[in-house]
Design a protein around this nucleic acid. Structure first.
Lengths: 337, 337
DNA sequence: TTGTACGCGTTATCAA
DNA sequence: TTGATAACGCGTACAA
């Protein structure tokens, strides 16, 4: 509330203000804050005192402009309310924060088109790195990234030819493993309850291939919206039950599985005795559900943490080791299938 | 792959490059891109062609430095995997994106301490606005924000004395309404399954007050971790059942309610006939659950959208109308209580 | 409608 | 170890 004395225009203190207060040059203050090793420790102390006295807050806009390093990471996820990606995002945020980076976050939807538009906008922030979800991106996106030569991590899927770095796993193999597991359990009349998404589609391909190997080619299929919700699981299961007699409902996500189980139970059917249910993702509730959901477990948190680490290392010039990380998956047998 | 001809160092094209290509001054190019109304339409066309030819991408670091408007909004949520905040966050992202802002996102945990540290770091980005979750913040945080005189929206709670703007609802009233509803339904032996969080604590206060008015002062209470998960709901319900005979379990969130219902059913108890369960939040699954969860419904999406709108309007100098928005809540009777 | 001059706050570079 | 100077790329303010 105090009016500034004299004709001093109120503005945020700058490096120069700190320098003046400390009786040093602004360059020395800059060094004292960023690379204290290069400055006499007494001088550092003086600087820190002046920073406190002036209430100085660095201007990362100016710093980024001058240094050409923004310390910003652009992160694109399909949807912020898709529980599949939430842990990954949380892990990214934690890891990046520890490494001194900040997250510029966008929900890109489930289409490469909007993703490309968003990235081209985000590039104006001159991010030091980019995190993408999935490996299916528009060519324009790749061009933009290539021209800017920004490090990129793709996540949640795997390919021998990523744009740059990658942390994920094979959805085809996960689908195949699911098919083999269920067939090994003796299920022969599966129905699919799936989402319309690229990685989910690849799981479906693997699944179909596995089923086809055992001559099952006519499994009924119901599609649900994105992000998948509990109610979609119920509705989808209901729809599948109408078509033909099933012994297992294979779901594109645990959420759908939870809903499907609920629908079956509401109809007086026992899971898995009457109809089994298979999930995907091993979300928080899967193990505690009644019955516990048999699912494909992923270390979703690790995807985020490792992707962030990969990116930070690359940015800082220490790209040790593999740049394509297969975190794998684990078919976790529980009660529902 | 083409090596740049002559001694031209490869670098991102700037406004000057575009200007040269278009035979105009850089200032005209800047105007053509930012305020095309002020430029002859033919000139604008020339500029756009030159932008395309050069592959120019604006540098928001430089732009923000010069204009003192970063078009960045710092958003702080407790946790990125807390489904309670996910829709709000998604809505914020969408609205801000439409208005030309980008989200600098941080998960701040559930304590004012870490929140303050994060904000002080984020301030170096010179955000045009800040979104906070809840109304309980450290004094240092308020000081930082006040000194920087940045617009702020607090969300998810209400108080007559916000830092600045606010979009939320009264948790005390929600708690009180819950108590009155359940007492009206005839329940007299409630147990609480709650989370350790500030806003949740206020709901609990309201709840206790409502219960006390009817002489109920000894309701057993079990606390669960944050963010609350399905398994915590099961475990918490199990713990409550050990203490004394209950006719209703009142939960701090729908997730806990879903878990509690599951635990009760697993024990052969009927919900609500044997023990009722009350939720909070009206999450995606609440209506479709079996039994459908009676809960306190909130327009979580609206919190995010309105908060973003409030902030964008303020930044752009058109602060019309109320700056404290009570979005209210709605006690939604379903089957579980 | 377009252009010129300058400043935004910092860091890279080189000199002392 | 510290300082002087010149970018970094853009927008504001004013002039033409």
């Amino acid at each position: 509330m105090a009016r500034p004395s004299r004709a001093v225009i109120s503005r945020a203190p700058t490096l120069d203000d700190v320098a003046r207060a400390a009786g040093l040059s602004s360059m020395t203050v800059s060094r004292a804050l960023n690379t204290p090793d290069q400055v006499r420790s007494e001088t550092v102390k003086k600087v820190l005192a002046a920073v406190k006295a002036t209430g100085y807050i660095p201007n990362a806009l100016a710093g980024g402009l001058a240094s050409r390093r923004s310390k910003l990471i652009a992160v694109l996820v399909p949807h912020l309310n898709d529980p599949l990606f939430a842990d990954t995002l949380q892990a990214m945020g934690e890891t990046l924060s520890q490494r001194g980076y900040q997250m510029l976050l966008c929900s890109a939807g489930y289409t490469p088109q909007t993703e490309t538009e968003l990235v081209s906008t985000l590039m104006s922030r001159r991010p030091d790195g980019i995190m993408l979800t999935g490996i299916h991106h528009a060519n324009d996106l790749k061009k933009i990234i290539f021209n800017a030569s920004v490090p990129v991590v793709e996540t949640w899927d795997i390919t021998p030819t990523p744009i740059d770095m990658l942390v994920g796993f094979s959805h085809e193999k996960a689908g195949l493993a699911t098919a083999e597991y269920l067939l090994g359990k003796g299920y022969r009349r599966p129905g699919l309850l799936w989402t319309t998404e690229r990685t989910a589609a690849q799981r479906k391909n693997g699944l179909y291939e596995g089923l086809a190997r055992h001559g099952i080619t006519d499994a009924p299929y119901v599609e649900s919206q994105l992000p998948a919700r509990f109610a979609d699981g119920r509705a989808g299961a209901a729809q599948l039950l109408e078509t033909t007699e099933l012994d297992v409902i294979i779901c594109g996500s645990d959420i759908l599985a939870q809903g499907a189980i609920s629908e079956l139970q509401a109809r007086g059917l026992r899971v898995p005795q009457d109809v089994a249910v298979m999930g995907f993702g091993d979300l928080d509730f899967a193990a505690a559900n009644v019955p516990a959901i048999t699912t494909v477990a992923l270390d979703r948190y690790a995807i985020g943490a490792r992707a962030a680490t990969l990116l930070a290392n690359r940015i800082e010039g220490r790209s040790d080791g593999e740049q394509i990380i297969d975190i794998g998956f684990h078919l976790t047998e529980r009660e529902s299938a």
